[in-house]
Every structure is written in structure tokens, then in C-alpha cells.
Amino acid sequence: MSIWKRLKEFGPWSRARLERDLEREIQNHLAYEAQESADRRALGNIPLVKEDVREAWGWARLDQFARDIHFGWRQVRRNPSFSAIAIGTFLVISLFVFIGGSKNPKRYRPGRPFHFTPVWFLSAPEQQSRAGLTAPVHSTGRELQAGSARPGRAARPAETGGASDRW
């Protein structure tokens, strides 16, 4: 069955038709049961059967969500000032997160220019040289790579000594 057909057949807009069909289907079943044994109990609790079928349609969550929204809206209407404070706080925090958040956040380092890149050091430079990665010739041997903010590119994180702000 194509997605379009599925949507057409089982979408929320076809709910009224599905409810009618379910009612008819159950009434037919009851008529058969009545013919055979005049015992309606065989079908069990009819509203429960309908409820289970509705759950099989997958709208139980949608219904719950709609009820939650309805309840929330009622609470807002009942106590508008409190709701305004809560919503306002949420919006202000969201705004700050939106303004402040970026993919590459810069950390402000006192006394340094904003674009300052820290120098990374090795805790064990001899391990680094064994691995075939050499430290800069003019260095003291303990600095890994000036200008690289990511030690993992040149050395394993366990071998790094961290960045220094006091260089």
C-alpha cells in the first residue's frame, strides 16, 4: 500500500468513517452471536474492544497529546499572570541561548586577544617522538604544536599536558 493510500485510508481525517465502520463491524458480529447463542458476553466489553481497536489505529498518543495541550491551555487561561511569567522566562532564556550559542564558541581569556589560540604541551614528549611525530626544532621539546587548539590531531589525548594560558 502506497504512503498516499495509507494516509487517505488511515489519516486522522478518516477517523469518523473508521469509527462508523468499527461500529458496523461490531454490530454485525453481535448479530451473528445473537443468532448462534443469544449470548452477547462472547464479545466481551464492547467499549473496551473499541478502545483496543482505536489503540491499534495508533491515535492513542495523538489523543493524549491533544488532551495535554487542552489541559495546558486551560491552566494558562485560569492563571494568566503566572503563565506570563513562566512563558516570559522561558522565552528570555531561549533568546539568550539562541544569541550565545554557536558551533565554534570562543572562550574569553583575560589579557589575550579574542582570537588567541592556546599552545598545547605534551606531558611525555619522548613518546611523541617515538610515534614518529616530531616537535618543532626551535622548541624546548615540551610544546606539541603552537597554533593548534586540538591536541588530538597530532597526539593522543592521554599524552598531552593541556593548554597554557600563562605562556
Binding site: 458480529h29 462472547a42 464479545l43 466489553n45 473496551l48 474492544v49 483496543d52 481497536v53 491499534a56
Partner: peptide, 10 residues
């Protein structure tokens, strides 16, 4: 149990 049949069919 018919209460299980119709949910299963649907």
C-alpha cells in the same frame, strides 16, 4: 477472544 480479534485485525 473477540476482544483481541478486532484490535488484531485492525
Amino acid at each position: 477472544e473477540h476482544g483481541s480479534l478486532y484490535p488484531a485485525l485492525h
